[in-house]
Design a protein around this nucleic acid. Structure first.
Lengths: 214, 214
DNA sequence: CCTTGTGAAAACTTTCACAGCT
DNA sequence: AGCTGTGAAAGTTTTCACAAGG
């Protein structure tokens, strides 16, 4: 599906996922086509950026017209691998983990939460939104019997290391880590570290910076 | 506190928040000093990157020795503006919003959640972790009477626009948006868009890419 | 005429190589 | 000797300028 690019540039990849959100919304409204300029405006970027992002793909647009939304969506979905199911486990069934288990947009995008894991006795063997929560002690065994693609970490920082020892021995392909601290992506594992508090801190800096400018 | 830099480079800023997480953890363990090499290893980056990031500040390190952790922490905290309180409201008291209201690391970093807002009658006028939940209809009035720095959006996409109309008229300085879709940061507002599903999709692409490589 | 597509330039970020303290 | 600090080089991303198609 690609032309020149061996693999998508990092920032293009990120934006493609954001284009999708906007395109879904437009499709919902019955709109069938959009120009790079309009899309750029909604994304708060330039129109050239949109077109450059698409230059990795065989021509999607029509000159003088714009992009067909259905076609645009299916090409991105295809390329991101979103037309297959990926199985997910949530490690740490606290409030954030539980929110993710309930998150409808995840299941719409075909990410299937298969199980949760926790250390708290009052959570173990219960279900959250039909997803069973197991003791963390069962994780090793569970991973031997079930093929899981992505493990999500929503546990306190000090539990991460022990869990990683188990994950490394499994066939899990990727980790999405919400705990503070960085999980290294050696060991052939794909890792994304996503600390929400970090984003608050960045806002703090920008607020401060702006105050100084006044 | 800065030397040459007018303002911190975007990626340096992001990493500074991540250094903090690691430094807190080290301080907890009673460690008082660290070299750029050790810190880099924990961050999964190069030692030069660490030192370059710090080149915006007046010399923090000691050659031949490393960085004093207490000093390092206080310089970053000072520069990010983390030694003051920022007031926060959570718009959308669903599972994610509720998780944020309970999130201890936020309060530790001095982000104070002052109120929540929702449209659901069963949530309005209740409290979550001592934070009162108001009707979204009270938002306008609330913002006139209370100085709030950051608004967090944890509402469905279609509610964003109406809420933005109210926010724009207020003195809110920054938005952290968990809804899909991009909020434009014109109107003198600082915005960070943070779609969690987007990170899952990026993992999807990388898993697919890796499979192809085998 | 409108909008896509794209080499080339500009801007930004990371890495290299090495000078400089302690 | 060991680690910090930094100008210069390399690599990546964005923007510019304009060619080309409907």
């Amino acid at each position: 599906m690609k032309k020149n690019c061996k693999s998508l540039p990092q920032y293009t990849l990120k934006r493609l996922t954001e284009y999708l959100n906007i395109l879904y919304q437009l499709r919902e409204k019955g709109i069938s086509s959009i120009s790079s300029g309009e899309l750029a405006q909604r994304m708060n970027i330039t129109d050239v950026q949109v077109r450059k992002d698409l230059s990795c793909f065989d021509s999607i647009g029509k000159r003088g017209v714009g992009y067909d939304i259905d076609k645009f969506i299916s090409i991105i979905e295809e390329d991101l691998g979103l037309n297959r199911e990926l199985s997910v486990i949530i490690i740490g069934a606290g409030r954030l983990g539980s929110a993710l288990i309930h998150y409808k947009r995840l299941s719409k995008a075909r990410f299937r939460v298969k199980a949760g894991f926790d250390i708290a006795k009052d959570k173990i063997n219960k279900t959250i939104n039909k997803v069973k929560i197991f003791s963390i002690e069962k994780l090793d065994e569970y991973l031997k019997e079930n093929k899981i693609d992505i493990a999500v970490f929503t546990v306190p920082e000090d539990e991460v290391e022990g869990i990683m020892d188990i994950i490394k021995k499994s066939d899990i392909k990727a980790i999405l880590n919400f705990s503070p601290g960085i999980i290294n992506s050696r060991e052939n594992l794909i890792v994304r570290n996503l600390d929400i508090v970090s984003d608050f801190k960045i806002l703090s800096y920008k607020i401060k910076e702006k105050n100084n400018a006044d």
